[in-house]
Design a protein around this nucleic acid. Structure first.
Ligand SMILES: [Zn+2]
Ligand SMILES: [Zn+2]
Ligand SMILES: [Zn+2]
Ligand SMILES: [Zn+2]
Lengths: 155, 155
DNA sequence: TCGACCTTGTTATACTATAACATATCTCGT
DNA sequence: ACGAGATATGTTATAGTATAACAAGGTCGA
């Protein structure tokens, strides 16, 4: 996947619209109003949101939601590949390319908190080699790098 | 680093003793009794322990400890490179090779919960390439693979 | 119509982590 | 000796993250 997005200036409206359209297509009716709204919230920026951030926003909109509402919606989105959980942050971001997203990796800026998804980490790196040598069967890999995005590197 | 350890039958007593000796050497006096005891607890198996697991064991031994006691000891061990935090598990494992551990990656068996550390992930993989292309400066990377160890793969 | 399945609502609780303040010790320069 | 700063521990309270469990309605095919 071509690295692109959060750290560059970009047309975020269409960035968001495209992801939402793909989500509609993937899920059809299963993308219920709450789930769709949560996805929209995640798509508002490239900053990861915690479940309670999502919850708070839902409440601000008049939805009298309890924690399971947020977690269920987020779990659904993650299961459909429309969002990703960032383990280091206990938070979630929307996937901006759900159509072709496999083995994603994440670059997390510790200064501005934006997260870039840089995908398709190869299955043949040093990790895969070591796993094979051990007889370990990898099912899923979390790769999350922390550092500074271009904008936050002091000049 | 040569993959070795948890998933193979091995002399765990010396596995543990070696790590402890290296820790003593690295830390000297700073490896206080509590900190050393926590490291020993982590070294008892290759299964990751949560902070509250550690706390419970300390209490079983008569130490009237509160949560900060466990977290402080664990934070110290992590800072010294004697233990690693596994983000996916909110848990900690001892590093069995503190002397030569840099950029570790982890293989987590979802069946038996043992964790293998397979180290020295290269700085020149696809991730590093993408980061460079984005101008992102990586400071630290979490790599955690989930799957099945050899013993847990049903035949 | 029945039952299986999915979705949402709601209450309560479990698990993980840190803030903040207190106490003790050591070391170093004066 | 004295006080300042650094380090380590004790203790209380609270913040933040996540799930269990039960209830209730909707859809849809057998
Ligand atoms: Zn965008
Ligand atoms: Zn940034
Ligand atoms: Zn061992
Ligand atoms: Zn296993």
């Amino acid at each position: 996947m071509i690295p692109s997005g959060p750290f560059e200036r970009h047309d975020h409206a269409s960035c968001r619209a495209r992801a939402l359209a793909q989500a509609d297509q993937v899920c059809g009716e299963r993308l219920t109003p709450v789930r769709r709204r949560v996805l929209e919230l995640l798509l508002e920026s490239h900053v990861a949101l915690g479940a309670y951030d999502v919850l708070e926003r839902l409440r601000d909109e008049g939805h009298r939601a309890q924690p399971p509402v947020a977690y269920r919606a987020l779990d659904f989105l993650v299961a459909q590949g429309l969002a990703h959980r960032i383990e280091r942050l206990n938070a979630f971001i929307a996937c901006h390319r759900p159509a072709d997203c496999e083995a994603p990796a994440f670059l997390i800026c510790r200064a501005c908190n934006r997260v870039a998804e840089t995908g398709n980490t190869p299955k043949r790196g040093a990790l895969a080699r070591d796993a094979r040598a051990l007889g370990f069967e990898i099912e899923e890999t979390v790769i999350e790098a922390r550092g500074l995005c271009p904008a936050c590197q002091t000049p």
